[in-house]
Design a protein around this nucleic acid. Structure first.
Lengths: 339, 339
DNA sequence: CTGATCCGTTGAATCGTTTCATTTATACGA
DNA sequence: TCGTATAAATGAAACGATTCAACGGATCAG
């Protein structure tokens, strides 16, 4: 169906090797020949078959990327930044969405192996370290995104989630709240576990402060709404004074339940805090306090770390770690008690 | 570096053809041989080289998809639904983000051609109809997403944007507003043009109603904020009574400017209406009225239409068209005048 | 015991590109 | 005029998987 290099060669009256040179090393070809070949290419609508090129080259120009949840604006932003940076390096990105499911994650890794990708950017959910190590042994570099690795094995870009969790809880405590709740997804997700650990250590420093842990089905707006619903049904006296959600989506859901379904006021009755600082955080019903993570920088850096390991002289793996930042908005303002 | 089928064959003491049969037609191989080969596969960590397989097969198992803006939750939802449906059909999706830039769009089409994708799902921005036609002539089916095609050329999934624009403006008029403004992105984007046309025809039916057209730099929250800023600076008496934005992101931006920067009240001073009904629309400072488009159905249907054209007996192209739906929330509630 | 049938296995040919050692043509200095 | 250096074009080999006609061996009916 599609024209091959051979047909182009026949039409232009040259050898296949010459056509290949026109495509890849135009300087090696004399101007008149070049033009004849170009005309043949246009006339036949020739498009290079990438599978054949890759087969010969032994490697592709693509980078595989696996994120935990592509519908979370935070990961979407990371992925987009990575894509832009990859384009600057002449590479393409194949994006996979694991949804924190180790099985889907493994399927994507296999897909990437079959594609012989240059490298893999991954936010791990299950334990794929052995898988990644065998990849590396085969010459496929991996960069852990939003996660750390044993140094000297892979590069990684991460944000200090424990510090972020600490900052969040500390902020809530500073505004006078004592009975806190943490809303997370599965505790198996490292980000969730770290943010909780950080929050707990802040709470433990303050005498009389308590931290209750609630688990949402997943980390979406819908799951947040369900948790919020459960909270509201306890009755007012049993409510925590402040809620810290492991990401902004959960916080948005909790917010909806508190305000819309019940008549509670945020922050007067309950303070609310999210994580990630997605673009929408400042546009919610009550603008949401959050912990900002530098999404663009994470994506960009991940691709750069990968590139470092690809050249002829691969650099040793590096760990880059960003520090998150507290963004205080209305949802953690003064409480009714203090007002 | 990576083991090939040949090495597996050598280790298992069989011919390469047998290894291939183990991989693709295990039923044709006797149990003992099968086991020997499997062991060799595991021992060598063999992973099939997809480039070679594709080269031989002449076609890949991937579908190319181009969306206008992957950071817009509406398109993200469409893409995710498409991905799920593709997985059900044993296909993978390569997602490209054109950002409404015809040049990037063209680059992705070329990439997909080189990859010899099964088919292409595309929300066109520039005029790529000739490009798509030549694709089709080469046996690569295309499905237009959120856009219509000349029937009998490609299949398409679309939503009636003119009707949506009409519904939006009509709703604003019904709540008593007469001086309306439309905030869109580039008028070259068909969705924008259609929604405007629909709005205009609703306005034209009502004597004394006016529609002012404002153009944002692009269709993001940031661009919306800039437009809102310009509006606010005019002074109160020059403000429209209602603003209809071509998508929810713009509306969120406009909302921020109106409320946060200036002291205007929504909907009392100005009514505001978005488009798409993304998940966040109900969680904004003032819950946003919008026009709902069935994102999941669009994505799913697009893949189904593509599949229809791929079998041995390809069906003729079909056009599927959804009707949008008005979702009235607080941002278009009663005005101060009528209250 | 022969011939037909069936199952499992074989290995060469093929896909389209890139590479590279050769060949061919051209120009230049001695 | 010859030899040599330079530039351009050639075409066979290789990449790794799949396919398919051909082959060998076992089974069985006659």
């Amino acid at each position: 169906m599609a024209a091959s290099i051979k047909e182009v060669a026949a039409r232009a009256g040259v050898a296949v090797g010459t056509v290949s040179n026109v495509l890849n090393h135009p300087d090696r070809v004399s101007p008149p020949t070049l033009e004849r070949v170009m005309n043949a290419v246009d006339a036949l609508g020739f498009v290079r078959n990438d599978a054949a090129r890759q087969l010969r080259a032994g490697q592709s120009r693509t980078i595989g990327m696996i994120v935990l949840d592509s519908s979370n604006p935070f990961f979407a932003a990371v992925a987009r930044a990575a894509e832009n940076e990859a384009t600057r390096h002449g590479a393409d990105i194949i994006l996979g969405n694991s949804g924190s499911d180790p099985e889907r994650e493994a399927r994507y890794v296999t897909l990437f192996e079959e594609q012989r990708v240059q490298g893999v950017l991954i936010s791990p959910s299950g334990d794929i370290s052995s898988r990644l190590r065998s990849l590396r042994d085969r010459g496929v570099a991996a960069v852990l995104v939003d996660s750390e690795s044993e140094p000297a094995v892979h590069s990684s870009v991460s944000v200090d989630d424990t510090a972020g969790g600490f900052m969040a809880a500390e902020h809530l405590l500073e505004t006078g709240r004592r009975r806190l709740a943490f809303v997370g997804g599965s505790p198996g997700i490292r980000q969730v576990a770290d943010r909780l650990a950080g929050a707990r250590s802040a709470v433990d420093r303050v005498p009389g402060a308590r931290l209750e842990v609630l688990q949402a089905a997943d980390m979406t707006v819908l799951a947040g709404r369900a948790v919020g619903q459960d909270l509201v049904e306890r009755g007012r006296s049993e409510l925590p004074e402040a809620i810290f959600c492991a990401n902004d989506l959960l916080a948005v859901g909790v917010l909806q339940s508190l305000l819309l379904i019940n008549g509670l006021r945020v922050p007067q009755d309950v303070a609310l805090m999210g994580y990630d600082d997605i673009d929408f955080a400042q546009s919610t019903v009550v603008p949401l306090s959050s912990i900002r993570q530098p999404a663009e920088e994470i994506g960009r850096t991940a691709v750069q770390l990968l590139q470092e390991q690809l050249g002829d002289t691969p650099s040793p793996p590096r760990q880059v770690r960003f520090t998150p930042e507290l963004v205080a908005r209305q949802s953690t303002g003064p409480s009714a008690a203090s007002a």
